[in-house]
Design a protein around this nucleic acid. Structure first.
Lengths: 341, 341
DNA sequence: CTGTTAGCGCATTCAA
DNA sequence: TTGAATGCGCTAACAG
């Protein structure tokens, strides 16, 4: 089923078929001929060979999305947002789940068996970022690279699209401080990446700026069980017990809630808990999580728009996306503080 | 950076480069020449143009995976399993999240902008399945099609790979019956697909076969909030209150737990709850969910193996994958039944 | 308005 | 043991 067959069936040349189906026939092919071509194509269920088209055009209309882990709903949403924009522009999106996401990534291009026009990488660890930009940046591959949720202004990146994490952390700590909390614990992700480093730095700054504020930190792998263990450590360490657990994401927050109950305490009467992301998990647990909602889908979409702009030779705008605090049942007044008091 | 450039750099012809890098030079090219070619390729960071290779070979070494929703961890695991096997065979895997997954899918091929060798579709609704197999089956596209978690023996499918859902449902009901439960409710997914129809039929059969067994059913959209609402309906309907809620997946089960508590009851003392899938959500909630673990990753892997076999012209083996019941805290003895009694 | 032609980069056949 | 020539299916420049 080639364009030649369609041409034969329609009684025209192959070039005419290409023009008609490529929608470039205005004033070059007669209405009648165009109709015949379309009819033949439809009848024969013709599908253009994309390999041939890519070869001829020198572009694959395909982008690679590198994420640390697909099984995390956050990245699934990033994918969905990016895919939507890509599809609107006739681009495909292939996924490369970087192994374990936290270590240095292998060079993705041998295994990503597709011709690529550009790369979007999200939330990569420091080491992985270097490997990616080495292979995709202006060096070898020369592919345009857009970073999501990563250190702004990295070398060789066309643009950086980030949620306003600093503001998000300020909202979380501010919310808790407003409820009277002063003794904080930070249940932090044990991953060396920009996204978590920002949380840490802003958390420290905010609590430090709070009269009477104090904080401890425990780090944890990114799953519920390890989050729970870290929260147990935070709650049973030396010194007075924290009354508020600020967690780097919702998985850790869910674990923190389990830790509180395991120690015979209640959420939020004895200990308040906040998360990041606003995954569907946040409303699946009881009480529901107060969390910083990150616009994952919008980040994917904005990243794709920036990449498409770069591919078109336009300047690719970096962006900082707004975040919001969603207040639910996992936070409440600090023990001993009267509500509205 | 073409194979011509490498040839020039190595002082050989382009054909020799192709032979050496394609690993087909044994006894046709001298050791020395091969070494020179490899060195030149490495030095120039040569990457073969995959569009050209696909065109020449007539195969793209790429498979499309159609899933109802990527933001569900289950399908993320299916993807991961399939991708692993694909990578081992030098195949790429591109994802097509069928819109809303429950309605009839658009023809995926216009939007999946890649040359495809085959299609794997998972858990498609009845209507969507028809659209896919029309486009991918032996008809138009002629692409081999492997169905996952779907009606076995569909027309034009090379193979079907399913978890043994019937056995899973028997395990769940049997577990609850063994704990003394007799009044069941089925919190069912409001999706017309094989995977949920099997659950329903086996649930009815099992409860019907149980002396003194009775059951009601409420249907729900596939998210926590609607699962909670459905469970409230099930628990507050006419007739005696069910003591066991059998839910079609873990999201619904999490919602059901919330419903129980919202009604002032306890899990599992007053009401036991079971789910399906064993998502990470199952251990994120308190109490943790007793659930039927479905081998999502293994399903993806087996599906990809079947498809690769079909592509190789070998018979593609259909498979039924074993499932297991993971007993956790959300199930307990029926009220009024003494443990071990 | 339509057809002819060339060439994208590669794997392969045939000659040397 | 190697090189020259061919064509995969498509689009774009150029002729008619």
């Amino acid at each position: 089923m080639t364009s030649r067959d369609v041409a034969r069936a329609a009684g025209v040349s192959q070039a005419t078929v290409s023009l008609v189906l490529g929608d470039k026939w205005r004033g070059r092919v007669s209405e009648r001929t165009a109709g015949a071509v379309r009819a033949a194509a439809q009848r024969l269920e013709y599908r253009p060979n994309l390999a041939a088209r890519s070869l001829r055009l020198g572009t694959a209309r395909t982008v690679l999305l590198v994420v640390p882990a697909l099984t995390n709903e956050y990245f699934a949403r990033v994918y969905a947002g990016a895919e939507r924009v890509a599809a609107e522009h006739g681009f495909g999106l292939v996924l490369y789940p970087s192994p374990e996401g936290v270590g240095p990534a292998r060079d993705p291009f041998p295994s990503a068996r597709a011709a690529l026009d550009g790369v979007i990488a999200s939330s990569m660890a420091a080491g992985a970022l270097r490997a990616i930009s080495g292979a995709a940046g202006p060096g070898a591959g020369g592919l345009p690279l857009v970073m999501l949720d990563s250190e702004p202004g990295g070398p060789g990146t066309a643009a950086t699209v980030n949620p306003d994490l600093a503001h998000g952390m300020r909202l979380a700590v501010g919310h808790l401080a407003g409820l009277g909390h002063r003794r904080f614990a930070h249940v932090a992700a044990a991953v060396d990446s920009w996204t978590f480093r920002v949380r840490r730095e802003v958390f420290d700054a905010e609590v430090g700026a709070l009269a009477g504020g104090s904080a401890v930190r425990e780090t944890s792998g990114l799953d519920v069980a390890r989050g729970r263990d870290a929260a147990v450590r935070a709650l049973t360490g030396p010194g007075p017990r924290p009354t508020a657990l600020v967690c780097d994401d919702d998985l850790l927050a869910a674990g923190a809630c389990k830790a509180v109950r395991r120690l015979g305490l209640r959420v939020p009467q004895d200990v308040s808990v906040t998360g990041f992301d606003d995954l569907s998990l946040a409303t699946a647990v009881d009480p529901e999580l107060t969390t910083v909602r990150l616009p994952a889908g919008e980040a994917g979409a904005a990243g794709m728009r920036a990449l498409l702009a770069a591919l078109a030779g336009e300047p690719a705008p970096s962006a900082e996306l707004p975040v919001s605090l969603v207040v639910r049942g996992s936070t409440g007044p600090a023990p001993g503080v009267r509500p509205n008091g």
